[in-house]
């Protein structure tokens, strides 16, 4: 009972998270959501009795890819405008209000 509740909530969260990763306007938010997605994906692989894949997902999906995306984001933004992402974040949300 509890086990199937865990599995169902995990599945639903994964789909919801994937949706937000794909539709997010802010790239930084998408990257952070992707890191979280990797973590939940590793949990799912564990529940699917595939610890090998869970290990690879934990190392690649959550650790390496996250660092790679953050670094790529930095390169993109600094190349385009020499401006840090954080400022754009704050100013844009202020503007939206």
């Amino acid at each position: 009972m509890v086990v199937s509740a865990f599995d169902i909530i995990l599945c639903l969260t994964l789909v919801w998270l994937a949706w937000h990763v794909l539709t997010s306007q802010d790239l930084f938010k998408a990257v952070v959501l992707f890191i979280s997605f990797g973590l939940l994906m590793a949990l799912s692989w564990v529940r699917l009795q595939a610890p090998d894949v869970a290990l690879a997902e934990a190392a690649i999906g959550s650790g390496l890819t996250g660092a790679l995306f953050l670094s790529a984001l930095r390169r993109m933004t600094s190349h385009r405008r020499g401006e840090r992402r954080l400022d754009c974040d704050e100013v844009r949300e202020d503007e939206g209000q």
């Binding site: 190392a59 660092a67 953050l70 670094s71």
Partner: peptide, 18 residues
């Protein structure tokens, strides 16, 4: 593995993004 690599993303964030 998670415990070891959890720090990687935040180090990348501090060093590169923020």
């Amino acid at each position: 593995v998670f415990a070891l690599l959890g720090a990687l993303a935040i180090v990348a964030f501090v060093r590169r993004a923020w």
